[in-house]
Design a protein around this nucleic acid. Structure first.
Length: 141
RNA sequence: UCAGUCGGCCGGACGGCCGCUGCGGCAAGGGCCGAAAGGCCGCCGGAGAGGAAAGUCCGGGCUCCUUGGACAUGCGGUGCCGGAUAACGUCCGGCGGGGGAAACCCCAGGGAAAGUGCCACAGAGAACAGACCGCCGUCCCGCCUCGGGCGGGCGGCAAGGGUGAAACGGUGCGGUAAGAGCGCACCGCGCCUCCGGCAACGGAGGCGGCACGGCAAACCCCACCGGGAGCAAAACCGAAUAGGGGCGGCAGGAGCCGCAAGGCUCAGGUCGAUGUCCAGACCCGCCGCCCGGGUAGGUUGCUCGAGACGCCGAGCAAUCGGCGUCCUAGAGGAAUGGCCGUCACGCGCGGGACCUUUGCCGGUUCCGCGCCCUACAGAACCCGGCUUACAGGCCGGCUGAUACA
């Protein structure tokens, strides 16, 4: 997994498409090339103390690591902004939320529209039933 | 065993799957990103948060700044004595004062006879203090139920009451009209001498009749210490763009001066919604190359150090010396983890057995289920301290009580 390091990259992603969830807010920006996707993680002071911020960032990092491939587009930067719930939510729930958020973001980018379509997309994310199938396939490879 | 007190230590364990960071070794040829500097990509091995990593309150190392140094002034800090230390406001050992039955704990603990200032309220009186109640008189006046009493005047008194944080030292005896260091003894206080101690200070003796209230976290005085900023310090490498300097090539209307270089004048272009005129400001060339400063960015600084552990020695101790062994996190939108299982510890609920009891309560142990699945908390240049936070647990010293021997 390639990580975002420069402050400018984070600022650019913040201006892109966003998809809120209980545990985090996902922000995506197309870079305009076809390199590998990159990920950044942010946990502000609002999340809690230094210990809690580190823990939130590490959990989100592993959420991304276990999801990989499929819904992630090449040539895009993804930033996960941690919320306080990222500390207490069950891990499986976070993984499901991340898949849902990825799908919503992809829809938004395809239609070029935001706002009105978000309701339908959020409903589609809840019916996602492939949560347990993906890690199993990973184990074979 | 219980109660208290002081000090030290630990602060989950094991395993599975999947990851991260840097180090060492092996490979050494290539690929990718970038304009460059530089970065990333392979396999194996071992390593990877704390006692406070925290607050950023003191003290240092290190780096840069004032050209460098000295002194003075100002400002800030510290404040019993001795020792430890690189240094400290830290630590150790003492001294003095206060608390406790004791172990032990607490103290911002220099100077108030260098000066200035403040001491509210209450109270009669508060800093060369003071008669409100009261006590006393062989003094004077008046009245009466007349060897006495009452009231008033004059005078004496700081013992008692009352106020206050504090009232010209306390207790006792003598003394007196009543009283008072007025006199005496003891205690306190001040001064002097001697003795003990490196010293803070302690002890003894003598003298003084008591003067010298408190506040210096009020100004101040005295002694000692301190230049400022901080790793986003700082060093090196180094784009794009704008601007600076230099070199070369090409272009350069008209007139005048000049051999020439060049100079002057008139033209030329840009500026306001547009055009003309006037005034003003600016440009007064274009292209290529080179140089230096410097921003983004990159690399270094970055972990071998007042280092850790063990043994021996010195010292009451803080600590110091010697010898041996070891290398023990180095990130940078920030690695040191995520998920799961088993176990331990703790807490709660239910049940069984045993001890105790009339019984309840209580204690021990076993089983099952549930909870927390750990508290406080995450290195950010590095050390020495201080302060604050902390579930639970372990060990030891000392004091007191009880039991046994």
């Amino acid at each position: 997994m390639e990580r975002l390091r420069q402050r400018a990259d984070f600022l650019a992603a913040a201006a892109g498409v966003r998809a809120p969830a209980t545990g985090f807010v996902l922000q995506v920006r197309g870079r305009g090339d076809d390199g590998p996707p990159r990920f950044g993680f942010t946990a502000s002071r609002k999340v809690g103390t230094a210990v809690e911020r580190n823990r939130a960032r590490r959990r989100l990092r592993d959420v991304v690591r276990r999801t990989d491939a499929a819904d992630v587009a090449t040539g895009h930067d993804y930033v996960l902004v941690a919320r306080r719930a990222a500390l207490s939510l069950p891990f499986d729930r976070l993984v499901a939320e991340f898949r849902s958020a990825l799908r919503r973001v992809a829809d938004k980018r395809r239609t070029g529209e935001t706002g009105a379509r978000a309701h339908r997309v959020r409903g589609a994310g809840k019916t996602d039933g492939t949560a347990s199938a993906r890690p199993a396939r990973r184990a074979q490879g």
